Amino acid sequence: MTITQLHYVLAVAEHQNFTKAAQKVFVTQPTLSMQIQKLEDELDVLIFDRSKKPIELTETGKKIVQQARNIVNESDRIKDIVDQQKGFVGGLFRLGVIPTVMPTLLPMFLNTFIKKYPKVRLKIEELHTEAIIEKLQDGHLDAAIAATPLELPNIKEQVLYYEPFVGYIPPGHRLHSQKKIEVDDLDLNDILLLEDGHCFKDGILNLCKATRNANGDRFQLETGSFETMVKLANEGLGMTLLPYLQTIDMKENEQKNLRMFSEPIPAREVSLIFNKSELKMQIIEALRSTIAGVVKGAIAFQNVKIISPLSKK
């Protein structure tokens, strides 16, 4: 049994296809098939059910893949130890970022990071939290930036910043004349929300502690765009809530419609999250320190109340 064979097994388990798996690990399909066959012969079990289309893991194969992932991670740790000992910060690093953080945070730190750490090859994906967790657990991401706490035993979290919720309340709305708003002022049926799948929406639902009355909706909205919700609010279709960084570059005439909450200000916790295996920690720390440095001046709120992104069923 070799580490290479385990890499091949994981590739086939991911792609459920020998040809695609071979392309992923840069070998010919016959070579990959032969190595997996050798492993199955050595173990005297079938890892894959080749009669199924797409290929499926056998019950024993599922357990082997789980252990193979652990072994491959531990083998990667050896190179990681050497890199850390040499002080080397480089190589491919796969980072996931949730959609409600990507457009505001990424421009703040990316240029600084790539200039400071030119040997790191960042591959950045915009993903919802559910997909991020799955990819972290499967080893397809090295780290991610997401709203926390997530309360997962196999995921570690390093808090980057606390980002307040801000009300966007256009003229004519019942709350527009207030200098500050209270959580009790909110009516969920009056708030324009992001589509399902966004943790920021779940945070708002948790903040309001109420259920939306679907029967009272004049229209149904499915959007992942804060800009769309602001434009709809400007048309008199309600108010919305925005993350603080989203409000910094708004037009001057729109900033007049922003309202902060009274303290303690409801806020989301944004963290760098990664697998408990803690691989590539030197790059994770480089990211953390870079982001912390750029957001320190942008977000200086102290008295905040963290609103969980965990969806309450």
Rank of each mutant, 00 (worst) to 15 (best):
L272W: 05
T58G: 03
S177K: 15
F26T: 09
P153Q: 15
V97R: 05
E42Q: 14
I265A: 10
R77E: 09
H140L: 15
Y168E: 01
L92R: 13
T211D: 14
V230Y: 06
A298K: 14
I124T: 01
K256T: 13
N154Q: 13
D41C: 02
F109M: 03
R77F: 12
L136G: 09
G224A: 14
G216S: 12
L258M: 03
K305P: 00
V97L: 08
M260T: 11
L241A: 02
D185T: 08
L207P: 04
I284A: 14
I145K: 04
L106H: 07
F274V: 05
G203Q: 10
E126D: 06
G224R: 12
Q16E: 13
T4I: 15
R174S: 09
F26E: 15
Y244D: 00
K313D: 13
D80G: 07
L6W: 08
E285L: 10
K201C: 00
R77V: 02
Q16N: 15
F93L: 03
L258D: 03
K209Q: 15
F88L: 10
Y168V: 01
K313G: 10
S271P: 10
V295H: 00
E42K: 12
T60W: 06
R259D: 01
L39V: 07
H128R: 14
P266S: 09
L92W: 09
G238Y: 04
C208M: 10
T247W: 00
T240A: 06
Q23V: 12
R121T: 13
N234P: 03
V101Y: 01
E56L: 06
L279E: 14
K312Y: 13
F88W: 12
D187N: 14
F109Y: 09
E14T: 11
E56D: 08
N111K: 13
N234T: 09
R50M: 03
V295F: 00
T290S: 01
P99A: 05
N154Y: 14
A11N: 05
M1F: 13
Q255P: 06
P170A: 10
E222Y: 08
M1R: 06
T60V: 11
E278R: 13
D80L: 05
G87R: 08
K209F: 05
N17Q: 04
G61T: 04
R50Y: 01
A146P: 05
M250N: 02
K231H: 09
V27C: 11
K24F: 09
S225Q: 12
D187C: 10
V166D: 00
T290V: 00
L205D: 08
